[in-house]
Design a protein around this nucleic acid. Structure first.
Lengths: 319, 319
DNA sequence: TTGTAAGCGTTATCAG
DNA sequence: CTGATAACGCTTACAA
C-alpha cells in the first residue's frame, strides 16, 4: 500500500509538504498542492488511520458497547447514534463481549457509549479517570467523565399503572426482564409504587428475559393456572408480544380476560391485534441525543452530566 | 495514561525488556519479569493498541459492515460471528454507513465481512488487491482475496415452490424485497423457475422491502382486490409476518383462502398462528462459519473461496 | 538475560 | 511556501 512517502516522492516534494497538502492546510502553493493531490490520486493513496491516530492521539472512533446484537430497541438506538456520528465525521464502532473491553483498554476509541452490564463499574471508572469520556445507558455512575442517560422508568410505569388501577384492574402482575437489568428493576419500582399507593399488593411476579420467546413461555405457564391476574405489566414490549401470543392461542381474550401492557413502543406491538398499550420511547431520537452529547464532549464543549430520553404512556387496545 | 516507558522505569529495566516480559517472551529472567509485571499492575498499565497495531501492521480487528443495524437475521449472524472471533482472540467491529468505508480505507481492520451493498464492488476490489481479505455475503465477486458466502436462494425457493405447486396451489404471487438486494433477486429466480417448469405464470408481484411494516401494507392493499392469489411467497419472514397480520385482520383464512410462505426461519415466525412455512437458514451457524474462514485466512491457512450456509424447506401450518 | 536503536506512517515544530 | 526532524508508543533485530 502506498504511503505518504510515495506520494511525496512522486510529486517531488518533502513528506511534510505532502502532509500539509493532503490535510488541506492553507500554507501550500496551489500548484504544488495540485501536484501532490494528483500524485495521491495516481497512487490511490489513503492515509493510514492507525499512524494518524497514534500521532494525533485520537481516533475519531466512538465505541458503542452492547451486551447483544439483538432486538428492535438496539437497532433503532444504534441507527440514531450512527446518523448523528456520521454527520459529524465520527466513526461508529459497535462491539460486544470481550471485544468491547479490548477496544476500550487499547484506546481504539475516543469515547464510548455503554449499554452492557458485563463491563464492570470499576473498569469504566478507571478509564474515565484516565480521560476517556463515557456515556452509560444502563446504570447510574457518579464520576468525573462518566455521563448517564437513563429512561425515566419509574415515573413512566408509575403513571401507566395508576391509570390502570383507576380503570378498575385489581389483580396486577409483573412480567419481569432479567433481574440484574437496570431498566427492569426500575420499572418494577414504579409498578410497586403505584400499587402501594392504592393499597394493592402485586398479584404475581413472573421471571422473563425481555424476549418474545420468554414471554410466550410465561404465557403458556400462566394458562395452566386457575387463579389468573386481570392485568399484566410486561417489562418490555417483546415479552408482552410473546405473552399475548400464548394467551391468544388459548382463546383468552385481551383485554377482557387479561389486559396487557408493555414498554418501548416497538413497531410490531402496533401491528398485532389488539394493539399493545405501552410506554413510548423514541429510541432513534435518544440515540441521536446521546451521540450529540458524546460529540460535544469530544469537542470540549460543555454538556449536562445527565439527560433523559422522552417517554410517554400510550394507551391502546390491549388494556 | 501510563506507557511502557513508565513501567520500565518503575521496574528499573529497559523498554525492550519490559516489552518482552509483558508479551510473555521466554527470554526474560523470572525475577525481572515478576518485577515488571508488578510494576505494570501498580500503574494499571495497558498497552496502547494503536501503537502496537502500527508497529505490527495488524490490528486483530475484523470489521463487519452491514447496511443497517436492524433485523433478527443480522442479530443472529452477528452473534455467531462474535462468538467465533472472540474464541480466537479477534475483536469484532460492527459498522455501517460511511464509517465502514473509513475503517476499511484507513486499515483499522485486518479483514472485513461485508453485507452492505452501499459499498461498491470497485472499492472492495481495490482493497482486496492491496491485500485486505474480504468475505462478501451479499453479492458474487470473483477476485483475488475476495471470498463469497451466499445462501443457495435459487435452489431452495425452487424446491419450496415445486412442493407447493404439487400441493395444488395455482395462483402464485411473489412478495419481493428491495429490488437491488441480491437475496431478493435470486429468490425470485427460483420462484420463476419452478413456475415455468409447470407452465405457470406469476399471478402477482408485490414490491415489499423485507420489513414487517412493508408486508403489512402490501396485505392491506391486497384485501381491496377481488382477484387474489391462493399462495404468496414472501422474500423473507418479516414481510410474511406483516402480510399475515393484515390478512388476519380482514378475516382472510390462512392457508385456506391464501397460503403464505417466507424465508429465513426467524423465531417469531414460529410463534404466530398459523406457524409460518419457511426456508430455514441457521444464521448463527453461518456467522460462525464465516468468522472461522476469516480467521483461517488471517492466519494464512488455506480456505475454500466459496462456501454456503445450510438451508432447508420447513413446511408448517401456513401452507 | 538485558539493553540499544531502528522504524511502523503519520503530524507538527521549527528553520530556512 | 517548503523541508528537516522529532516525536506518538510500541516491537524486534542485533549487540552486549
Amino acid at each position: 500500500m502506498p504511503t505518504i512517502k510515495d506520494v511525496a516522492k512522486l510529486a517531488g516534494v518533502s513528506i511534510s509538504t505532502a502532509s500539509y497538502a493532503l490535510n488541506d492546510q492553507p500554507n501550500v502553493h496551489p500548484e504544488t498542492k495540485a501536484r501532490i493531490l494528483h500524485a495521491a490520486k495516481e497512487l490511490s493513496y489513503h492515509p493510514h488511520g492507525i499512524a494518524r491516530n497514534l500521532k494525533k492521539r485520537q481516533t475519531n472512533n466512538v465505541g458503542v458497547f452492547i451486551y447483544a446484537f439483538a432486538g428492535p430497541v438496539f437497532s433503532e438506538t444504534l441507527e440514531g447514534i450512527r446518523q448523528t456520528l456520521q454527520e459529524h465525521d465520527f466513526n461508529i464502532i459497535v462491539s460486544s463481549g470481550t471485544s468491547s473491553m479490548n477496544l476500550l483498554l487499547e484506546r481504539q476509541v475516543d469515547g464510548a457509549i455503554v449499554f452492557d452490564n458485563h463491563i464492570s463499574d470499576d473498569v469504566l471508572k478507571h478509564y474515565a479517570a484516565h480521560g476517556m469520556p463515557l456515556i452509560v445507558l444502563d446504570r447510574l455512575i457518579q464520576e468525573e467523565n462518566i455521563y448517564t442517560s437513563l429512561i425515566d422508568n419509574e415515573s413512566l410505569v408509575y403513571h401507566l399503572m395508576s391509570d390502570m388501577i383507576k380503570k378498575g384492574y385489581q389483580r396486577l402482575a409483573y412480567l419481569a426482564g432479567p433481574e440484574n437489568a437496570f431498566n427492569n428493576r426500575m420499572r418494577y419500582v414504579g409498578f410497586e409504587k403505584a400499587l402501594k399507593e392504592h393499597r394493592l399488593t402485586p398479584f404475581g411476579y413472573f421471571q422473563g428475559d425481555f424476549t418474545i420467546q420468554g414471554g410466550y413461555h410465561i404465557g403458556k405457564e400462566l394458562i395452566k393456572r386457575k387463579n389468573r391476574p386481570d392485568f399484566i405489566f410486561c417489562a418490555n414490549d417483546e415479552s408482552a408480544i410473546g405473552l399475548m401470543q400464548a394467551l391468544k392461542e388459548s382463546n383468552i381474550r385481551i383485554p377482557e380476560d387479561i389486559a396487557v401492557a408493555g414498554f418501548d413502543h416497538i413497531a410490531i406491538g402496533q401491528l398485532i391485534t389488539p394493539k399493545l398499550t405501552t410506554i413510548s420511547i423514541d429510541h432513534k431520537a435518544w440515540g441521536k441525543m446521546v451521540a450529540k452529547v458524546m460529540i460535544d464532549i469530544l469537542k470540549g464543549e460543555k454538556v449536562t452530566r445527565s439527560f433523559r430520553p422522552e417517554g410517554k404512556v400510550l394507551v391502546n387496545e390491549s388494556c
